Computed example of a mutant assay.
Amino acid sequence: MEYRTLGGTGTIVSTQCLGTMTFGNESSEEVSHAQLDRFLERGGNFIDTANVYSRGVSEEIVGRWLAARSEVRDQVVIATKGRFAMGDLPNDVGLSRVNLSRALDASLRRLQVDTIDLYQAHAWDALTPLEETLRFFDDAVRAGKIRYAGVSNFLGWQLQKAAMLTDRLGLTPIVTLQPQYNLLVREIEFELTAVCENEGIGILPWSPLAGGWLTGKYRRDEVPTGDSRLGDNPERGMEAYAPRNAQERTWQVIDAVRKIADSRGVSMAQVALAWTADRPAVTSVILGARTVEQLDDNLAAADLHLSADETALLDEVSEPIVGDYPYGPQGKAQRASGRVL
């Protein structure tokens, strides 16, 4: 396992992070604890969850694992999130001080810890002034309830505004961004990557395997069946499956990943994870396994690095499809040069 600093902080985390969205849903508590044990054995020290994962059950599973292994707490960095509804009342949702204070205290109880290492806003909240959310994060750090603050699923202007506000107001900075990022979803490169590089914010990609597409388990024009998330519950993702299946780019990317995997003697998942881990500003890639066997395969990518030629091939076939301006060829040249042409 390799390690990097958590954004611009001095805290060290593994370049792979164990995501726990499957805990309590697709993975039983026994399997979840087995995944946590295996991750720790292989050198992983970064665990990500959220209060809404299995409606609190994921945090509870992690909490019971920590409680049963008292020596482990100082070895791991625990991240969780708050924002989405955990109740039916008007103030049970959002990034307001009211909801986040309740959500944070509940997460601390479920995780059975005194301090959460990284507390993240799970998504933007247009109803709450951003300054209110950032001041809550700052107060939580001062109270010793959290060590660092991060955000997830923010747009470029939203993240830049947060970074500028914390700097101007002298508040605890945003140290991480958790976005969807993989070979099939590269749109964060238009603006968010640059913001993160400029502001010292670490990127924590979720869905690095694009919901299983980059593992090679799906076939062109075939309805998914068998041991896959879409196979188990086709209706869950068929709205996204159909347009992705219809894009020639999807299959060009999959073919390129398979070609590199075959030449390397590794799995397609390992190639996709290695590409993501070595992208600019990426701190740690979030793994989402249902079984220990899936996790083992993902963990094998921890020390895999692609060659310049392999990376160039994947970059070329996965280039996002955009118009001309501002994200097409002209806009790309401007961003690369740092000046208006």
Results as ranks from 00 to 15, higher is better:
M1S: 08
T5L: 05
G8P: 00
G10W: 06
I12P: 02
F23N: 10
F23Y: 15
S27K: 13
E30R: 14
S32H: 11
S32W: 14
D37W: 03
D37F: 04
D37L: 08
D37N: 14
N45P: 08
N45F: 10
I47G: 10
S58P: 08
E60V: 06
R64C: 06
R64M: 05
L66A: 04
A67Y: 00
A68C: 03
S70W: 02
V72F: 02
V72M: 06
I78A: 07
T80V: 04
K81D: 11
G87H: 06
V93M: 08
G94C: 07
G94V: 12
G94N: 09
L100D: 03
R102Y: 05
L111E: 03
T115A: 11
A121E: 05
A123G: 05
R135M: 07
Q160H: 10
A162R: 02
R168M: 13
L171F: 05
I174M: 07
V185G: 02
E191V: 04
T193C: 00
W213S: 00
R220P: 01
D221T: 07
R229N: 12
E235L: 14
A242N: 11
T250D: 01
V253R: 03
I254D: 00
D262I: 01
V266F: 01
S267G: 15
A274C: 10
I286R: 01
L287I: 15
D296C: 03
A300K: 14
L304K: 06
T311P: 02
D315G: 03
S318L: 05
S318G: 09
E319Q: 12
E319R: 14
V322N: 06
G338D: 09
R339N: 07
